[in-house]
Each structure stands twice: as structure tokens, then as C-alpha cells.
Write a protein that binds this DNA or RNA. Structure first.
Lengths: 138, 138
DNA sequence: AATAAAATTGATAATCAATTTCAAATTGCT
DNA sequence: AGCAATTTGAAATTGATTATCAATTTTATT
């Protein structure tokens, strides 16, 4: 019922701005904290986490955990990019994220639902491996 | 060069036993700690983590991070099951893991390498979504 | 069985990300 | 301006994991 009112603050705006300026970057809460301190002024870490939680809740940002263990990573879900509809490949060596928007993937999901009864959630799934550059450098 | 010798202890044996008894379970370090305290006697948590690290190192166990954030999960890699060669689907609702051993997946990997230059790592990748039962219960 | 060398254990402390708390500041509205 | 609801942020807390290091256990060798 009662939706909480939403007060607009410079902190929330700045976190949103960070993602607008860095649409393809996977950032940690600390990355954003440092950006704010450098460019905008003081901010509390708790506020960063609260902003991020809110944006994840709203489906504006995707949160995932890297195996490196440096804390959670956050990345913009750009509706124009359809990040909620395609897969993400993440290179375990260089950290690059590849947006896999390709017809084959639709077939893949269809197969998984049809043959294994499993409904894939693209906002949570990340496929790990080596990108072309890093595989070549091995 | 000099490989360290490997002393066999009841602690290491008991952690291995835990996985033998629970081949399909994703356990946290704490799950195993509690199992030990209940069934086997006292153990230090540091020892649990060291055993798990060793087993991951040896390729006997897979470590991954759950989005829930309750710490890392560990699961047996059964060579007979070929868990290093197939995908894992994990239901975000009930936690069940489905081993996706199916010809379609080979085609999938082939496509990703061929068209996107990306070499998938099955030991790291987990595909999240809803299993049949949980999707029906929604 | 006794011994020595090497590795493992476990209690404790240290880290570090993330959350909670709560008083103070900010926001939106009239 | 005045007011209530919400947000902020500094500090304390939690919780998982790692580091430390003396004591214990294991293994190989007499």
C-alpha cells in the first residue's frame, strides 16, 4: 500500500550520474565512494550502499559477486542495451564484460526452459571464462 | 618445485566424508563446521577453511559465491559426473542445483568460442534462475 | 618404541565488506 | 517560515575469512 515518498538528494543523483558516465563499468561500492570524494565532496559509505541497494531494488543496477572477493560489483542495467534480456560474459583475467546480444542466446534460453524446465534470470547470471585477448596472452 | 608432503588427518578425512555423504549439496564453511561439531567433535574454523582451500586447489570441490551473501559455497566436483564439463543451473528460490549435461550445451560453448571469442569456464559459471517447481509455486 | 623433522591444528586476533543505529540535516509541502 | 517524513553519516557492530604462532599430530627413520 503506502509507497514511501522518495526524496531526491544530491547523493542519489551523484551515484546515478556515476553510472551514466560509466555505463559499461563494473564498480565496487568503494569505487563509487572514491569517485564521490574526488569529484563531489564527502559522502558516507553507508549512503553509497543504501543508494546501490535502492537502485538494485529498482532494477536500474545489477549487483554481482566476483570470485576475487573484493566485495560486490555493481553495473548499470541500460534498458536501451537490453541488459535484462541478454547474457553477460565476464573475463576472469581482465574483468571485461561482454554483452551477449545474439539470436543464439534466445534459442539457448528456449532450450533450457523447454528441456530442463528452468527459467534463466539474465540479471543474475554471469558466464565466466577467458576473453579472446586474455586467452591469447596465456 | 618441492611439493609439500601431505599429512592425512581426521579433520581432512571428515571434511571429505561430509562431501561424500552430501554429493549434491552446496555447503557453507559454517555448515561443515556445524556438521563436525555435531557428529565428530571439536574443530577450529580456520581448519575448515584450510581444508576447503586445499580441496578447491586439488579440484575436488568447487567454490562459488551466492548472491545471498552468506559467504562462499562449496560443492563436490564428482569426476564421474563431469562437473567440470557441464553447466550448473541454480534455483534462486530453493537453492537446488541442476547439472546440465546435455548435447545442446556443447553447441552453446562452441558458438561462444566461435562467434564471440570467449572460452567459457564451467567450474566457475553458474546460471541462475527458477526451477520448474519454484516457478510453478509463484 | 623412541626420535626428529615437517606439517597441521586451533585459539585468538586482525581484516574487511556490509549493516545497523540514531541524532542531525535535508527535503517537500503548505 | 514551519512541520513531518525521509535521508544522511559517523561510529559501532556484525559476520565471513585470513593471519599468527605455539602446541599437537603425523610420518619416516633409527
Amino acid at each position: 500500500m503506502e509507497n514511501k515518498r522518495n526524496y531526491h538528494t544530491r547523493q542519489q543523483e551523484a551515484v546515478a550520474e556515476y553510472f551514466r558516465l560509466n555505463p559499461d563499468v563494473c564498480a565496487t561500492a568503494d569505487d563509487i565512494y572514491l569517485y564521490f570524494m574526488r569529484e563531489k565532496g564527502k559522502i558516507g559509505k553507508a549512503t553509497i550502499y543504501r543508494c546501490l541497494d535502492r537502485m538494485v531494488e529498482n532494477g536500474e543496477v545489477k549487483r554481482f559477486l566476483s570470485d576475487g572477493g573484493d566485495g560486490a560489483m555493481y553495473q548499470l542495467i541500460d534498458p536501451a542495451n537490453g541488459c535484462d534480456r541478454h547474457f553477460h560474459l565476464k573475463c576472469t583475467s581482465c574483468g571485461r564484460v561482454i554483452h551477449l546480444d545474439c539470436g543464439f542466446m534466445a534459442a539457448f534460453e528456449k532450450h533450457i526452459v523447454g528441456h530442463h524446465g528452468f527459467r534463466v534470470d539474465n540479471t543474475r547470471t554471469i558466464i565466466y571464462g577467458l576473453c579472446e585477448t586474455c586467452a591469447a596472452a596465456q
